[in-house]
Simulated assay, not measured.
Amino acid sequence: MRGLLVSTILLGVLLSGCGAAGTGGSADAVDRGVPAASSSVSDGGANAFNPYLRESLPNTRLMSAEAVQMLGKLGARKQSIEGEAAYRSHWREEIYPVVFGDPRAPREILVLLDFAAPQSEKVWKAVVEASRSLSPRQCKIAVFGNSRENYGTDLLGLAVWISYSRPGQAMPYLSYALERWNAVKAEQKRSGGAKPFTNEYDATAKATDFPIHYGYLTRLRPPVPARDELAVARYCYDAGNVNMYQTVQLCRYYGVQRLPAVVVDGKALGRVSAGAIVNAVK
């Protein structure tokens, strides 16, 4: 019953997800600091969605009267991501994957990615550059994803897994995955066969290529043993979906209408650059 309820919630929310409307802009524009997100609706400061610091998180999903009545008849409790996902061993990491810094650090950078948006790579590079000027005791970076092409869900899910299984290695992985996504797209276009990355083998340029996430499992330290690769890959899709649900919530709460986007201490940046991120944290 719990799994069915989670699936129902995910389906209802994700159909109206913030990434579905497209991203706009260009990769070069992001480097110049051209607007990458709408202005913030909520200015509640940092950590509103941080399960390490809050027992109750914002719930932006509005339910119809019929849905409320149906759930009441089923004897269901008030819905919340922390309540529905709590049966998962690493639910906190899935809804709030910290890839830099202490999860309980006072300052917060939320990075919302769409793997299918080419400019996500540029935005992520700005985040990585900014991190070199930040204190991990004072600021953390958490990553979220809602990709228009389904394979992005797996790739974000692997970032979740790496964030707690291989501490300190999630940021280099995301740099690799975003770069590789755009490189494969470019190779496919040159050969006249570009296609949506729905499944892992869509994201290859040649028949001999490994899918992006499989190609990285052996780069980790320690590498993922071959016998565990399938289990990790299966986990990634589930974790990516849990994270995607929370990404939709973040978009609604902060008024973000297109991805990629960066939210610093509760404010969505209108212009994304390393300097803008660092200045917003100061």
Rank of each mutant, 00 (worst) to 15 (best):
Q119N: 12
Q119M: 13
Q119Y: 13
E121A: 14
E121R: 15
K122A: 15
K122Q: 14
K122M: 10
V123R: 02
W124P: 01
W124I: 02
W124D: 01
K125N: 14
K125F: 07
A126F: 11
V127G: 13
V127K: 08
V128W: 09
V128D: 06
V128Y: 08
E129Q: 14
E129M: 13
A130H: 07
A130L: 12
A130W: 09
S131Q: 12
S131I: 09
S131L: 10
R132F: 03
R132V: 07
R132Q: 13
S133D: 15
S133L: 08
S133P: 05
S133Q: 12
S133H: 12
S133G: 08
S133N: 13
L134D: 03
L134K: 08
L134F: 11
L134S: 10
L134V: 13
S135I: 05
S135F: 07
S135C: 07
P136V: 10
P136A: 10
R137K: 14
R137D: 13
Q138T: 13
Q138C: 07
K140Q: 15
I141V: 15
I141D: 03
I141C: 01
I141K: 03
A142N: 03
V143R: 01
V143G: 01
F144I: 11
G145V: 06
G145C: 09
G145E: 05
N146K: 05
N146L: 13
N146Q: 08
S147G: 10
S147M: 07
R148Q: 15
R148H: 06
E149R: 14
E149M: 15
E149K: 11
E149A: 14
N150K: 14
T153G: 11
D154Q: 12
D154H: 13
L155P: 05
L155W: 09
L156T: 08
L158C: 07
L158D: 03
L158Q: 03
A159G: 14
A159C: 13
A159D: 01
A159F: 00
V160H: 04
V160T: 10
W161K: 01
W161L: 04
I162L: 00
I162M: 00
S163A: 12
S163E: 00
Y164W: 14
S165R: 07
S165N: 08
S165C: 08
R166D: 00
R166K: 06
R166P: 00
P167F: 06
P167W: 05
P167V: 09
G168F: 01
G168W: 02
Q169A: 12
Q169K: 07
Q169E: 08
Q169W: 06
A170F: 00
A170P: 00
A170W: 01
M171R: 00
Y173R: 03
Y173P: 01
Y173M: 04
Y173Q: 02
L174A: 14
S175H: 01
Y176R: 00
Y176E: 00
Y176H: 14
A177P: 09
A177Q: 12
A177N: 07
L178A: 03
L178P: 04
L178N: 02
L178Y: 01
L178M: 12
L178R: 02
